[in-house]
Design a protein around this nucleic acid. Sequence first.
DNA 1: ATCCGGATCGCCT
DNA 2: GGCGATCCGGATG
Length: 212
Amino acid sequence: MSRRGEGSGSVAPPVRRPRAPALPVSFYDRPAEVVARELLGTTLVCRTDDGIAAGRIVETEAYLGPHDPACHAAAGVTSRTRILYGPPGVAYVYFIYGMHWCMNAVVRENGFGAAVLLRALEPVSGVPLMRERRRAARHVRDLARGPGNLCRALGIDGSHNGLSLSRGKLRILAGAEVPDEEVSIGPRIGIRKAAEWPLRFWVTGNASVSRG
DNA sequence: ATCCGGATCGCCT
DNA sequence: GGCGATCCGGATG
């Protein structure tokens, strides 16, 4: 690897690769189970005043819309679910169990509320910042393992609800595709209704997946 | 006004 | 494997 500034006595600046593009809105304008699968291998980035943190998405769950009893959109249009019935490609962030935030990508077209829950990331950058936010986590692989921990590690909360995922401080960037033989599919976790539907997708064997 | 369940986590045994 | 923490949205009176 060559290094700029060699022999000049100055410290070489960090090498900057061309930044991966954010996924376009059209990426999200598809059925939830397709988007959930395709999100594996992409990168979630969140920039706050404290810095940038990012990770590779390794576990997702699809929530299909009003006909899916486990999807919040099944409650109909309320102040909470309104965001699910709007345009795709934005974040749906909600608070649960009195303690945790969960982040979803809103998918599909107008008038049909559906979403993909982001359940786990493999940390990529901003690890020291994530460690500060997640004092309880002993290992890097645990920093964004599980939907609540993921939000905690990246500094995501209710203020991010409705933000675009294609521009601004919260983005999902294209990444290396994960081939089918490295993807596992199984029942969703932590829900009572329609839990057996095989709508959870994860990278087989990845250490940051909440349940391998 | 009040009640209840929930797309979780970490610590306990 | 079990459970307590702790708050919000939605439903009911």
